[in-house]
């Protein structure tokens, strides 16, 4: 589902990734652990195209979505609109001014999947951090992703909300998605992930 081979990336002469390999099967939940600067986030950002790798191969069997530590929803809009925006990639511009009814229905089922259908019309800024992160996951589902990359999805959340989000990611892997999460909490990684990959900090080149 997701194969990364020999991924290399450096920022201004500082190498953060030097030949990184990772392979994730459908239905598998992989946790990436490692100190800051070990290139975990950079690897994920390369997969979704937010960074351009210097070398290596990335194969995604389908559609990769990303979930961020800082969540990155539009706080002033309601949960439903934020989830609908996951569908923008397959909407023509003239259909994306107001989300069509079929997209709104699909977005509602995505919100249902993360357990927040009853909050659809609440502004995201009024939801708790954990709820916001679940809305962001619903947005990834509305993108019809089969690979979910989560960059420290629970670092900004309280322990209870973190557990909810981890359980959700695990359940999505159970549905057949490939899930990769960058984590800073080894306990959570070992409890919920099928496999834990430790990354080492690159020595300055």
């Amino acid at each position: 589902m997701l194969t990364i081979r020999g991924l290399r990336k450096s920022f201004g002469g500082r190498t953060v990734l030097d030949g990184f390999d990772l392979s994730v099967e459908p239905g598998e939940f992989v946790a990436l652990l490692g100190p800051n600067g070990s290139g975990k986030s950079t690897a994920l950002r390369c997969v979704v195209g937010l960074e351009t790798p210097d070398g290596g191969e990335i194969e995604v069997g389908g559609n990769a979505a990303m979930v961020f530590q800082k969540i990155h929803l539009v706080g002033r809009r309601n949960a439903l609109d934020n989830v609908c925006s996951g569908a923008l990639g397959r909407l023509a511009l003239h259909r994306s001014f107001f989300f069509p009814q079929d997209v709104r229905e699909e977005a509602m089922s995505c919100l249902e999947r993360v357990g927040l259908a009853d909050r659809a019309l609440d502004r995201c800024a009024r939801l708790s951090g954990g709820q916001q992160q679940r809305v962001a996951i619903a947005r990834a589902l509305c993108q019809r992703a089969n690979v979910i990359l989560a960059d420290e999805p629970v670092s900004a959340l309280d322990p209870q909300a973190a557990v909810q989000v981890m359980e959700l990611l695990q359940a999505l892997a159970g549905d057949g998605m490939a899930v990769v999460a960058v984590l800073h909490q080894p306990e959570l990684a070992h409890t919920y992930a099928h496999r834990v990959v430790e990354m080492k900090a690159m020595v300055a080149a």
Binding site: F68, V74, R76, S85, G86, L88, S96
Partner: peptide
């Protein structure tokens, strides 16, 4: 904020779609 723009870029949204659904709602 750059974040929501990045998030929509990942969904495959085009520039005008990002302006419409991330930038404008934020700065209105």
């Amino acid at each position: 904020d750059r974040g929501p723009r990045d998030a929509l870029e990942v969904t495959g949204a085009s520039g005008p779609q990002i302006a419409l659904h991330a930038v404008l709602p934020t700065v209105l």
